[in-house]
């Protein structure tokens, strides 16, 4: 492609994850926001139970699951400028692994969960291997096309429900931990998802600060320079893409267990678009921004869709305004506000 300069230097630049000076405002935001966020999420079930609003435990379980997918997308989108417009595909694959295993009467989490993650990772590896050969609009279109391919493949799996999807008869069991890990229990499952989100967040955090993450970020800033120093950005990008797909696969595994239902709609291309919206709304390239974005987007959806079934007529223009006038997302706004 010819737009190396665009992708290289300007790239995706809303919230640059460049080194932050210790004890600066941005540094404090980067520390405090995730801490407060996870503390609030950890306490949420207690508050919900106390207020008698158990519905919020279920809602936030779903929100955290999609937040895992959003964080995994932020890893490649925010730090590597890889605009994957097909991320819902890995979510769907993870979910379908659980659904298909359940259809064949395998409900063991020790089998299903690693398998769901592994199959998603392999799919991401294959799709990434082809897509990452290209840049710019090609990359966007190709990731979108591959996700659509998997979507149509899922709709034609007539044995596993086809268009209508597949009902799962009960959540996975965890043999060996049966006594105290009953996934059917609402609060237990909430904390399982919470721990998954925390682990994914910490893993991504560790990745972006590692040497590996520096290569990814460096290749985003200036690919030619990275090559000159002796790195092959393609390999690093592919590894990041695969890891990201694997984490989205975990989100799919959790989503299938949460909804006890799997359908091609999980990998609809609009879902991929919504994941990008979550990341950008929260603030790209910050990881916790993706979580905030997922909460904001899904709460907004919850509230607006309760008010008016045609809420997307309002949301569409809001999204355009967000792009035109509010770059940096919510985390960017928080940082600016603290600057005073």
């Amino acid at each position: 492609m010819t737009d190396l300069s665009r992708n290289g230097s300007a790239g995706v630049s809303a919230a640059d994850p460049a080194p932050i000076a210790p004890f600066s405002r941005a540094w404090l935001t980067a520390r405090w926001v995730p801490l407060v966020l996870f503390a609030a999420l950890a306490l949420l079930p207690f508050v919900a139970d106390w207020a008698g609003e158990g519905f919020y435990i279920t809602l936030f379980t779903r929100i955290m699951i999609l937040a895992i997918a959003a964080v995994s997308l932020d890893l490649i989108l925010g730090y590597g400028a890889m605009v994957s417009f097909g991320h819902a595909a890995y979510l769907g694959i993870g979910a379908y692994v659980i659904g298909i295993l359940d259809y064949h009467a395998v409900g063991n989490a020790w089998i299903g969960w690693p398998l769901g993650i592994a199959v998603s990772a392999v799919a991401a590896l294959l799709i990434g291997a082809v897509s990452l050969k290209t840049r710019g609009v090609y990359f966007i279109m190709i990731t979108l096309a591959f996700a659509q391919m998997l979507y149509f493949a899922a709709t034609s799996l007539s044995r596993y429900g086809g268009d209508d999807g597949l009902t799962i008869w009960g959540r996975n069991t965890v043999p060996g931990l049966d006594g105290w890990l009953d996934l059917e229990d609402r609060t237990t499952y909430y904390y399982v998802v919470f721990v998954c989100l925390l682990l994914v967040y910490l893993l991504c955090r560790a990745l972006v600060t590692s040497r590996f993450g520096r290569v990814i970020r460096g290749a985003k800033e200036n690919e030619q320079r990275m090559r000159a120093v002796g790195f092959n950005p393609y390999v690093y990008r592919l590894v990041a893409f695969t890891l990201s797909g694997a984490m989205a696969g975990l989100a799919g595994v959790l989503l299938a267990n949460h909804a006890e239902f799997v359908s091609p709609a999980y990998m609809a291309w609009t879902r991929s678009g919504e994941l990008i919206v979550m990341v950008v709304l929260g603030g790209m390239g910050t990881l916790h921004g993706a979580i905030i974005g997922a909460i904001s987007f899904l709460m907004l959806e919850e509230i607006l869709s309760g008010l008016w079934q045609h809420w997307k007529v309002i949301f569409g223009p809001l999204l355009i305004l967000l792009v035109l006038f509010a770059r940096g997302g919510i985390v960017g706004w928080l940082e600016k506000r603290r600057h005073g």
Partner: peptide, 24 residues
């Protein structure tokens, strides 16, 4: 207003147009 923006902004804004028009 998006010609000199990066591809991600273009994707998001035109995605907004799709949501709007499909619902309209």
């Amino acid at each position: 207003h998006l010609y000199d923006r990066d591809h991600l902004d273009q994707v998001l804004a035109t995605f907004g147009i799709i949501l709007f028009l499909n619902e309209l």
